[in-house]
Design a binder for these strands. Structure first.
Length: 318
DNA sequence: AAACAGGTGCTAA
DNA sequence: TTAGCACCTGTT
């Protein structure tokens, strides 16, 4: 049997399924439905509930093997269950199973040491401890930067069903097939050459924002491949060269695509939560909320933010 | 019917 | 630097 550290996947589950031995906790449902990514769809798979979505150039269906199943493995008295990844062999042809497993492993940030992160946050304060109880095993993803950027531009002053609809439509119209009847999010150039599709997608006033983003990314004025190497503030100001990208969208991209765990995106929910929990209900600015989040939660502020977000959305009527 | 939804750009102090 | 307002579109 393979072990998490040395060999992250196990072949032999069949032609179009691979298994990834989980090196730590993973709450698939919270991770994929907490709102950091917009495209995952809950489906009824052959083995029960699964999530269908796109990782890189390929569609996959993700599910956890059941606790009583035989595919988990004990190591040092601790059980590590498996993640099942099924894919379309026709589309994946030419890619090795190792490469696909690595892509999923990286996308889900299975290398993050959740025990350390969650323990650190729980010790911060009682609010965070309560919040953590609702979303243990949540992992911040490493999404594709362009798709993430475009998605959060679309999210501006919008609601989640509408956001999902727009992204889904654009992908279907302009993206590449990725198997399982899904399509990749369209590249900047695909959008630039079919701007009318943005109207059909009903993205409203965000159309000009998306076009500006596509132009600046395609033209190299904003170099997405260079952002990972920059200090966060510098990377954020690069992103904010784009019309429609302010502090909140920039922080979301840095957190959900570049895995900059020290940022603390503030939307209306986080603003309410910070005001209520840490400022006695007093009115505060988003700037104040952001600074306080970073001050309190330090290098794991991003994880704190996501747990807090999930907490206020799912257990309060704020 | 009117307000609101994962903010941002613009303008005015 | 900060406050106030409009904004496509869809839903309640």
């Amino acid at each position: 049997m393979c072990r998490p550290a040395s060999k992250p996947y196990c072949p032999g589950e069949g032609e179009s399924v691979l298994r990834i031995l989980l090196p730590g906790p993973l709450n698939l449902e919270v991770t994929l439905e907490c709102g950091q990514a917009f495209r995952w769809e809950k489906v009824q798979g052959s083995r029960g509930i699964a999530y269908k979505g796109v990782v890189g150039a390929y569609s996959v269906m993700l599910s956890l093997c059941d606790v009583s199943g035989t595919c988990g493995e004990k190591d040092a008295g601790r059980e590590f269950p498996c993640l099942l990844v099924s894919f379309d062999p026709v589309v994946v042809k030419g890619t090795t199973r190792e490469m696909l497993a690595d892509a999923v492993f990286r996308y889900l940030s299975l290398d993050d040491d959740l025990d350390t992160i969650e323990t650190t946050l729980i010790e911060k304060d009682q609010i965070m401890r309560k919040a953590l109880e609702f979303s243990r095993g949540l992992r911040l993803l490493r999404q594709d930067p362009w798709e993430c950027l475009a998605s959060y531009i679309i999210s501006v002053h919008n609601n989640i069903p509408a956001i999902r609809r727009v992204i889904s439509y654009l992908s279907k119209q302009l993206g590449e097939p990725t198997g399982l009847r899904e399509y990749s999010f369209p590249a900047p150039r695909a959008i630039l050459s079919n701007p009318a599709v943005l109207d059909l997608a009903r993205c409203g006033f965000r159309k000009e924002y998306l076009l500006d983003a596509a132009r600046k990314v395609d033209g190299g004025e904003v170099d997405l491949s260079a952002l990972g190497e920059m200090p966060v503030e510098k990377a954020a100001s690069e992103l904010m060269k784009i019309k429609g990208v302010g502090p909140k969208v920039a922080d979301c991209v840095l957190l959900f695509a570049y895995h900059r765990l020290e940022v603390f995106p503030v939307d209306v929910w986080i603003l309410r939560a910070m005001s209520r929990f840490y400022f006695g209900g007093r009115q505060i600015s988003t700037k104040t909320a952001r600074e306080e989040g970073i001050r309190r939660f330090g290098k794991f502020a991003g994880y704190a933010q996501e747990h807090l977000y999930h907490y206020v959305r799912n257990s309060f009527g704020l």
